[in-house]
């Protein structure tokens, strides 16, 4: 028992302390968090806008009079549907490679490329989450807003989105956690994220167990921490209604 423990300790020192290899892990962690954070911001921004286009088109397509407005809305709606189909119909790794080698060829800033790709990817899923949230709000809320004199955008901003957001928070949290883990494929474009950091150590020390288990543990702890944080936020939002 004591022998096994000593061996583990030795392996730990060899993998992380020697040559300051722990820096691969901490720097990688920072990159993972950065990419996740920016991708989430971009994803929510895209999600809100595209969800508004989709749901406003569905709500008003029968009532709209022919003209510029209707043509614009139909065009935007078709564009939104194309976006959703393409993004949800292709693997994120392929999108990442296309983003790096085809679209953003001129930049070497891999954090930027990864954030964009994951943001655009996640935006498609967040769109559907937020659209569900918008549709779950009683139409009377929308009518009340419009009857006071708010236009469509103002009604969305002040009345519908705040309520929808509260309803979709659990799903958004799931998406965030999925995103955090999905960014592990960033290594494909040479980005030194948490997973790649652990893998580099494995390559240097030729021991797989210690670095990979450490990486897995860090992901797990992050997910547990964020789940706890979101649960707290959720309870707080709910209590404001009581």
């Amino acid at each position: 028992m004591a022998e096994a423990f000593a061996k583990l300790k030795e392996s730990f020192i060899f993998n992380f302390i020697e040559g300051a290899r722990w820096k691969y892990i901490t720097n990688g962690l920072l990159v993972t968090l950065k990419v996740t954070f920016f991708a989430l911001l971009l994803g929510i921004a895209i999600g809100v806008v595209v969800a508004m286009i989709r749901s406003s088109y569905d709500q008003t397509k029968d009532e709209m009079q022919p003209g510029f407005g209707k043509t614009l809305m139909t065009g935007l709606n078709n564009l939104a549907r194309l976006y959703l189909t393409v993004i949800r119909g292709t693997p994120v790794v392929v999108q990442l490679l296309i983003g790096y080698f085809v679209i953003f060829v001129s930049t070497t800033n891999t954090v930027f490329v990864a954030s964009m790709v994951f943001g655009i990817n996640s935006g498609a899923y967040i769109t559907e989450i937020i659209r569900g949230g918008i549709m779950s709000i009683d139409p009377g809320q929308f009518e009340a807003g419009r009857s006071i004199g708010f236009n469509y955008i103002q009604t969305m901003r002040h009345i519908i989105i705040p309520q929808a957001f509260k309803n979709v928070l659990p799903s958004l949290a799931n998406e965030f956690i999925a995103l955090l883990k999905e960014t592990a494929v960033c290594g494909y474009i040479g980005l030194m994220d948490l997973t790649k950091g652990g893998d580099v150590i494995r390559g240097r020390t030729f021991s797989a167990f210690m670095p990979l288990i450490a990486v897995a543990l860090i992901y797990l702890l992050l997910v547990i921490f964020f789940s706890w944080l979101i649960g707290k936020l959720e309870r707080r939002l709910r209590s404001s209604e009581r």
Partner: peptide, 12 residues
């Protein structure tokens, strides 16, 4: 001004 059957106050 409009008043609805189901009030439609903003719950948040």
């Amino acid at each position: 001004g409009m008043v609805f059957q189901h009030f439609n106050l903003f719950p948040h």
